[in-house]
């Protein structure tokens, strides 16, 4: 939920915004710097006020959000809708869990190993996947995801099979275990914050510009001398790395990794979070992820277990009410500033 520092405007956003007056532009810039800071401060203060369950729910939202934003780099920025992104999340989670159990639970070590493992797994499979496009890409990534899921299930001696990888120790910072949910939350907040920042830097770099170019008109980029395959592959590996990072945080926070972390349901939910939030904006998916996790974990149990029903209704309504996801809301707000808003 921390907003990006200096959000890069997507081409669509540029196209739909009329040239703003200077005052408005200044407000806009101020808002862009101030809002993320305010949100960050609020988020950092959460453990001081909110009870443990709320705090750990928020931790899960942050992790799922980082995962969703990493997918947005593929779906929204590069135009590659993946239905197997959970494979790399799962690989990262298992890697972090194994490192924490067998080697060290010291702070960032398992998490960085997770990111590396996610990137390596994405590299090993991505060269196959990015050769196709559209729905075929969707299905090929689905197949990769299911195969990874099945491997996690079958390699019981390493992964614990369907019982999951359990007994993951608490995260340590400087040798001190973080036993309280509030401290774990701060750890998660710090790493996800850096993760978002990293993804935004990638998306707003010239490299990100080329990815958007490929998304919008691949033949043109090819004729300009770019190799779409190499760029798509690089995007796939980077997205896999950040998904692995999120997976590593998941292992640290939940302390149990099961094959379903790499499976179809996780992949589908994260893709829906991206669409719900607004693909390509890099911040919309954060809200999409928040809705998905809140409905499933916080509201679901109070609905007699009919969380999926509510989720289904949310999806259907969102398609009509929020044509461009939550990200579309910002343009609405911008075009019609409410009277109460300070200029």
């Amino acid at each position: 939920m921390s907003l990006p520092v200096g959000t890069p405007a997507t081409p669509a956003a540029i196209a739909s915004t009329t040239p703003p007056r200077t005052a408005e532009r200044r407000t806009g810039r101020l808002l862009r710097v101030a809002l993320p800071l305010v949100v960050l401060v609020v988020l950092a203060a959460v453990p001081l006020f909110v009870a443990p369950f709320g705090t750990s729910t928020l931790s899960r939202i942050l992790i799922f959000a980082l995962f969703a934003v990493s997918l947005d780099l593929l779906v929204g920025v590069t135009g590659l809708p993946s239905l197997g992104h959970a494979a790399y999340f799962g690989v990262g989670a298992y890697a972090a869990g194994l490192v924490a159990i067998h080697w060290t639970a010291e702070g960032v070590v398992p998490v960085l190993v997770a990111a590396a493992a996610g990137a390596v797994a994405a590299g090993a499979t991505g060269w196959l996947a990015v050769r196709s496009g559209g729905v075929y890409f969707l299905m090929l990534t689905l197949a990769i995801g299911e195969l990874v899921h099945q491997l996690a299930q079958s390699l019981a001696s390493v992964t614990g099979g369907s019982n999951g990888l359990y007994g993951i120790p608490t995260v340590r910072i400087g040798g001190t275990p973080l036993t309280l949910p509030g401290y774990v939350y701060w750890f998660v907040l710090a790493v996800t914050g850096l993760g978002y920042l990293g993804l935004h830097l990638v998306a707003s770099s010239p490299f990100g510009g080329v990815l958007r170019g490929i998304r919008d008109n691949e033949p043109r980029m090819r004729s300009l001398g770019y190799s779409p395959f190499r760029y798509k592959f690089a995007a796939f590996v980077i997205a896999g790395g950040f998904a692995g990072l999120a997976g590593g945080l998941f292992a640290a926070q939940v302390r149990l990794v099961t094959p379903s972390e790499a499976g179809f349901t996780t992949s589908a939910l994260v893709l829906l979070a991206v669409i719900l939030g607004g693909a390509g904006s890099l911040w919309g998916p954060i809200l999409g992820a928040a809705v998905v996790v809140l409905v499933r974990d916080a509201l679901g149990p109070d609905l007699d277990g009919h969380g999926p029903l509510l989720l289904g209704i949310v999806f259907v309504l969102a398609v009509y009410v929020l044509p461009r996801g939550f990200a579309g809301l910002r343009d609405l707000l911008r075009r019609r500033p409410s009277p109460g808003e300070t200029p």
Binding site: V75, P81, G134, V135, A268, L271, L272, I275, L276, A279, L311, G312, I313, V314, F315, V316, A318, V319, P323
Partner: peptide, 11 residues
Amino acid sequence: ILDQALLTLGI
């Protein structure tokens, strides 16, 4: 096309 995926999966 992903919007239709969202709609039909919701349904």
